[in-house]
């Protein structure tokens, strides 16, 4: 490889690094969140985003009646503990779940009896004495669902045997 080829390679590598750097973490929840068993379907309401330390961001999802949902969260380790809070999207903002009360559990299941809107509120840990507080990292929320009929069918096997 002559000098000019090396230069060209260096240039292309730097462009590649630039492009990779520019990519967002749209696939993060698929690659990093825990998944439920195969009776659940992937919901396209799942979402990944960039987070810096100590920020709160929320999104609204629709959950249908008589469906069971699985919600799982994952974030870059530098973001620390990730708090996920779920509340109803109405005037009362009734809180339904807060993982900070349960040692920052990474996933939860719920059955839903009535179609409703839920707010998923995610907060990254605020850390003191960090080098670059504005540094951004990926975080994802995976949502899966199944019809309660299939849930019951799946659970019925638990009633038999030892």
């Amino acid at each position: 490889m002559n000098f000019l080829h090396k230069l060209l390679l260096l240039f292309l590598l730097s462009l590649f690094a630039f492009q990779t750097n520019g990519q967002v973490c749209s696939n993060y929840h698929i690659d990093n969140c825990g998944w439920a068993d195969k009776s659940f379907f992937y919901s396209r309401q799942s979402r990944s985003a960039l987070f810096s330390h100590g920020i709160t961001s929320k999104f609204v999802i629709i959950v249908y009646a008589n469906e069971e949902y699985f919600v799982s969260i994952a974030g870059h380790k530098k973001l620390g503990d990730i708090k996920i809070r779920v509340y109803e999207d109405d005037n009362k903002k009734t809180e339904l779940y807060d993982n900070s009360k349960y040692n920052y559990e990474k996933y939860f299941y719920f059955q839903n009896k009535n179609t409703r809107k839920l707010v998923i509120e995610v907060t990254s840990e605020k850390k003191a004495n960090i080098k670059n507080p504005n540094e951004k990292y990926c975080l994802g929320v995976l949502i899966e669902f199944r019809h309660m009929k299939s849930a019951n069918k799946n659970n019925s096997s638990k009633d038999i045997g030892f």
Binding site: V63, E88, D90, K92, T94, L96, Y97, N99, Y102, N103, E105, Y107, F108, Y109, F110, Q111, N112, K113, N114, R116
Partner: peptide
Amino acid sequence: TKIKQYKTNSFVIEGGNS
């Protein structure tokens, strides 16, 4: 809206607007 908590990471949401 009513919540029935079963485990630390499992619950049922009942009631709410229809």
